[in-house]
Amino acid sequence: MISLDAILFYLFGAVTVASSLAVVTQRNPMHSVLFLIGSFLALAGLYINLDSPFTAVTQIIVYAGAIMVLFLFVVMLLNAPREDVASPYGPAYVTLTTGPRRAFALLSVVLVVELVLAMRQFVSASQPSGPDAAAHVSSVRQIGIAIFTDYSLAFEATSVLILVAMVGAVVLAKKRL
């Protein structure tokens, strides 16, 4: 008997992985951004499956909404639809740079194995929470209390970070550097 939780996990997980792969393999940056929005929407479904509706809504509003619109805006502004295939230094330069690149990309497969092994040890060493944890985790009230008490210093530092990023972005994108 397959539960609804399992069906939703495999459905959203498959959509997330497939659209993330499409982001990496698409030649057109516009398509990459659109596939990444699909990946983020499926991730929001996974968060709901994990009893975290606040994080799911924030994911859709902030990530799929604000950040991806910023990316789309820049892609359209620069009007550079395709990746530069030809190198300005000739074909020899391309083979020199693509060799190490491919080797490092293979290392990411090693990274999967390594991460899964490390996480298996972590999971076997940890104790799962009780059945009443779902109500505690999904409560926006608890998240608000945690942000404004335990994490208040980090919250204030974040506001400074946003201010600095805003000023920095304006200074960097100005016409005369």
Binding site: S52, L70, S129, A133, H136, I143, A146, I162, A165, A169
Partner: peptide, 29 residues
């Protein structure tokens, strides 16, 4: 966070999203 029954994981995700927004703004500029 869901496994251990705490909201700390979600709070950190909140901060990661903020840092990602700042990173995207500066990176795109």
């Amino acid at each position: 966070g869901r496994h251990f029954g705490t909201v700390d994981g979600q709070v950190i995700v909140f901060f990661v999203m903020t840092v990602a927004a700042a990173e995207a703004a500066v990176g795109l500029a």
